[in-house]
Amino acid sequence: MDEIRVATNNFDEALVIGIGGFGKVYKASFDYGSTFVTIKRSSPMSEQGALEFETEIHVLSQLHHQNLVSLLGHCQEDEEMILVYEYMSSHTLFDHLHLRSRGDLPLSWTQRLERCIRVARGLHYLHTGTEHKFIDRDIKTSNILLDHNWVAKLSAFGLSKATNPALVSTTVKGNVGYFPEYFWRHKLTEKSDVYSFGVVLFEVLSARLAVNPVEDDKHGSLVDWALYCCENGIATQLVDPDLEGKIATESFEKYIEVAKKCLAEKGVERPTMSDVLQRLVHCSFRKNADIAPTRDGNRTEKADLERNSDLTPGIEFSEIIITIGR
């Protein structure tokens, strides 16, 4: 614990970079600033406690994937619970969608799509990459962190469940707006994560909050608004104004299709994360992309798309794919 206090300058408030359900989150260093880590300190007033602390350690000790935030260490002393993670210097996906500072550039469509692909890879690993399936149960843009290379990683596994068999009856955990059917039925499966990820997909496309209490009933719930737009042929109204005219038509249509499937009312009707991942990768190919949709239903020509995109110079637009790594 003494090393933790030194690393955080005795939990200096100036080093606080966030506050979550577990407690305050600090930027810290064990070697006088040459490398940094993230430290979560439990709070007596926290919504989460010893059970979530032990779950996070148990889950992350079994999971190793480039799209999951790594747990570097932990300690429990004098009723203090401390978790130490790799430092994610580029903040959260939520920050980049909703809390941009003046002058910050919005994420491009390519950047947003690549981050969704990486998160999908992390979820696919949780569901299939270990002996027992793990269900995240707390997927939201504020739990998707970006490292110094802007690689997206899932974080916060204190609410996760290891399932064997796949179906678990459990109390409700998570955040309103990202809840699937288990909010009502208390039945948790990996398809519950798929639903939450579908909310994230529409949030990434629209830069709308999952739940916005200041909006009217029609627009307050992102899920309700997204499904209404899809069912009434006005899906282009979901596009973030910063992306208007900058998404290739084929990419847009494939993305809307997979996001909508994730929000199917019944879990059995939703795709697996493997299927979601494959569909998102297909979105990235953007073959035969000559025109792109705008919010009013008009089209943007290919030349305009190329000027407004962040494509690598010298590469043909129709040949671009996103590198998603291994």
Rank of each mutant, 00 (worst) to 15 (best):
V6N: 15
T8F: 02
N10S: 05
V16A: 08
G20E: 00
F22W: 05
K24E: 13
Y26H: 02
K27E: 01
K27G: 00
A28E: 01
F30C: 03
F30S: 08
D31L: 00
K40I: 08
S43N: 14
M45I: 12
M45N: 15
S46E: 10
E47S: 14
L51S: 12
E52F: 01
H58C: 11
V59L: 00
Q62C: 07
H64M: 11
L68T: 08
L71S: 08
E79K: 10
I82E: 02
Y85V: 01
H91N: 13
T92G: 06
T92W: 00
F94C: 08
S101M: 09
R102A: 12
L105A: 15
L107M: 13
Q111K: 08
R115A: 10
C116S: 15
I117K: 06
I117H: 11
V119N: 02
G122L: 02
G122T: 04
H124S: 12
T128F: 00
E131F: 12
R137E: 02
N143Q: 04
I144D: 00
L145H: 00
D147I: 04
W150Y: 13
K153Y: 03
L154M: 09
G158V: 01
L159M: 12
T163Y: 14
L167S: 15
K173V: 09
N175G: 12
L188R: 03
K191S: 11
K191L: 14
V194D: 03
Y195A: 04
Y195V: 09
V199P: 02
E203F: 13
L205C: 13
S206T: 04
S206D: 07
V211G: 10
N212K: 09
N212M: 07
K218A: 15
K218Y: 05
H219M: 14
S221L: 07
W225T: 03
A226Y: 05
C230V: 14
C230M: 14
C230E: 09
N232V: 02
I234W: 02
T236H: 12
L238A: 09
L238Y: 00
L238E: 00
I247V: 10
A248T: 12
T249P: 05
E250H: 14
E250R: 13
E253S: 11
E253T: 08
Y255K: 03
I256A: 06
E257P: 01
V258E: 01
K260E: 13
C262K: 10
E265T: 14
E265L: 12
K266P: 06
R270Q: 07
T272V: 04
Q278I: 14
L280S: 11
H282S: 10
N288G: 11
D290R: 09
A292G: 15
T294Q: 11
D296P: 07
G297N: 08
G297E: 04
T300N: 07
E301T: 13
N308C: 06
T312Y: 12
P313W: 10
S318G: 13
I322E: 11
I322Y: 05
I322W: 08
R326K: 13
